[in-house]
Structures are given as structure tokens and as C-alpha cells.
Design a binder for these strands. Structure first.
Length: 274
DNA sequence: AACTAGATCAACCGCGCATTA
DNA sequence: ATAATGCGCGGTTGATCTAGT
């Protein structure tokens, strides 16, 4: 099958948009909505193809577009989401109101990718670069090893979800808790929520938590101080990651999510700081 | 002041998916 | 079931800007 061109190229304008064209497009969409992008230019009187109109509107003219440089918080979120979603810019953009996929893609390609590379982290996989010539290709440090563990867990989780969506049985015994399970649980727990929102997390003493006696489980309790965003989290029999030892045993000790990672071996999150 | 290299970002291109005929 | 169409996505390009020499 041969794809028909999206528009008749002859006679259509290309390149940068003039103010006058922007005005026409804004005025038309405000009055009529965009409707069919393909027919919009004809109805609006623009010598552009529908695709070009859609791009101009979604990336530049939309009233809810947030202009200006990305804040450090936005940059952190992009890095975190990229670690989970990969190059799915549109999906990442959903989490950053007012930012477009194109803008985020540019931010990544121009700034963040270089920053991660300079930190010794592969920006595509979020894994550390490995030691040259090492037969076992070991990560260079505990912190980078930890990053690799999380990335592996993410990949396993995605594979698992794909398998499950296909209705295929999994090889993992039902009573065996994997790092994948751990990753998914943490990600979908209040810890993950706090991680995504940059809120602090409070680890409660194990004795106060309701932990299932039959399975390894992460238990979250409702926020005891909603205004602070604190959550109570405890873990039991975690297979891969050790519960924080000293401060967490203190009642109401609170930690940022970055400290959460610190406790588990990732001691360098400075790249998130911009 | 003139030139150059690198950085930036808006816009384009081609592909794949979903929907419709 | 197949072809045609529309749309959105990610990758790439090229014009413009900026800093350095």
C-alpha cells in the first residue's frame, strides 16, 4: 500500500510561521476548534498543510503552553520519568503541564543527556557505563550498581507486564518475590508517589507497621501528617534491599526520597540538582 | 569587526497505529 | 478482510543565536 501524501505539497508554504499566520490559526481554532487538521488550512485560509498547523498549534500557540526555561524540579521529573518511560516524550509531557513533547525532547537531547553522560551514566539506559576491559562488566561503584539494579528491575517489570498482557504464564514461582515485584510495589506505593512528587518519606519502625506474615510486603499507611506529605513505609524480608538501619528505627524520622535511595546504596543523586 | 563553532529550538519527515469506508 | 485516511509520535534537520577567538 502506498501512503498518500499528507497534503498537496505544491503551493504550500513551509518554514517559520509569520505572525499573521499565527493570528489566523489562533482565530480560527478559537472560533471553530481544530476539527479535522487536514481540512483546517483550507477552511482557515492558510497556505499550510494540516500537519504543519497541528504542530504549530500544539507546540507553540496553545494557550496553556508554559514558556520559559525548565525549573530544576521539572528537570528532575524529566530524568525520573525518562528512567521509567524511556524516549516516550509524549507520555513524559503528560506529567509536565504546559510543556510539550517537543520541548522536553529538546531539553533531553541538549542538556540532560550530556549531564548524565558527564556523570558516567548512560542516558539511554540509565545504567552506569562499565569499566573498560572488565570480564564481568561490573559497574564502577555501589551507587552506579544500584542505578543498574533499578533499571534492570524496570526492564524486567516492563517485560513482565507485556507477558501478562498477553496472558502468558510467568516462570517466577508465585511465592518468590523478585526485584521486579519490589520495583513495581515501590513505584505504585506512596514511596513512588512521593518520589514522583518530590515529597519526603517517613520510615516507621517495623514494630508499628502492619506487615503480612505470609509474604514479603511493603506496607504503606495513610499519611499521618497530610500537610507534610509524610508517609509511613516499612518493609519486611526484602530480598534485595536492606531496610535503613539507624535513623529509620527512630520514630517519626523522616527522609527525603533521595535519602531513601542513599540508604539503599545510591549515594550520588547530585546530577538531579542541575 | 569579522569569522567560526557550538548551542538552541522550531519545524519537518517518515513511520506506525487507529479508525473508517 | 483490505485499502485508504487521519493523526500522533519520535528522530532529525536547518535556521538563528551566542560566545569565543
Amino acid at each position: 500500500m502506498v501512503r498518500a501524501p499528507c497534503c498537496e505539497k505544491a503551493g504550500l508554504k513551509r518554514g517559520p510561521w509569520a505572525q499573521e499566520e499565527d493570528d489566523i490559526l489562533i482565530d480560527y481554532i478559537n472560533k471553530n476548534g481544530h476539527g479535522s487538521w487536514r481540512s483546517l488550512p483550507k477552511h482557515a485560509g492558510l497556505l499550510r498543510c494540516g500537519k504543519s498547523c497541528r504542530l504549530r498549534w500544539t507546540n507553540y500557540l496553545r494557550p496553556d503552553i508554559k514558556r520559559g526555561p525548565f525549573t530544576p524540579e521539572e528537570e528532575k521529573l524529566v530524568i525520573q520519568l525518562h528512567a521509567i518511560l524511556g524516549n516516550r516524550w509524549a507520555a513524559i509531557a503528560v506529567q509536565l503541564p504546559g510543556r510539550t513533547d517537543n520541548e522536553i525532547k529538546n531539553l533531553w537531547n541538549i542538556h540532560l543527556r550530556k549531564r548524565l553522560t558527564s556523570m558516567g551514566i548512560d542516558p539511554q539506559t540509565h545504567e552506569p557505563f562499565y569499566l573498560e576491559g572488565s570480564s564481568k562488566r561490573l559497574p564502577t561503584s555501589s551507587s552506579t550498581r544500584h542505578m543498574a539494579q533499578w533499571e534492570n528491575a524496570r526492564l524486567e517489570a516492563e517485560a513482565r507486564l507485556s507477558m501478562e498482557s498477553l496472558g502468558l504464564s510467568l516462570l517466577t514461582p508465585p511465592n518468590k518475590v523478585t526485584n521486579t515485584d519490589y520495583f513495581l510495589r515501590v513505584w505504585h506505593s506512596e514511596v513512588g508517589e512521593c518520589f514522583r512528587k518530590g515529597k519526603p518519606v517517613c520510615f516507621s519502625p517495623a514494630s508499628q507497621a502492619s506487615v503480612s506474615s505470609t509474604t514479603t510486603e511493603i506496607v504503606t499507611k495513610p499519611n499521618h501528617e497530610p500537610d507534610t506529605g509524610f508517609s509511613c513505609v516499612t518493609m519486611k524480608d526484602d530480598p534485595g534491599i536492606t531496610k535503613p538501619s539507624s535513623p529509620s528505627e527512630t520514630e517519626d524520622s523522616s527522609y527525603s526520597i533521595l535519602q531513601f535511595f542513599d540508604f539503599h546504596g545510591h549515594d550520588d543523586m547530585s546530577f538531579l540538582e542541575g
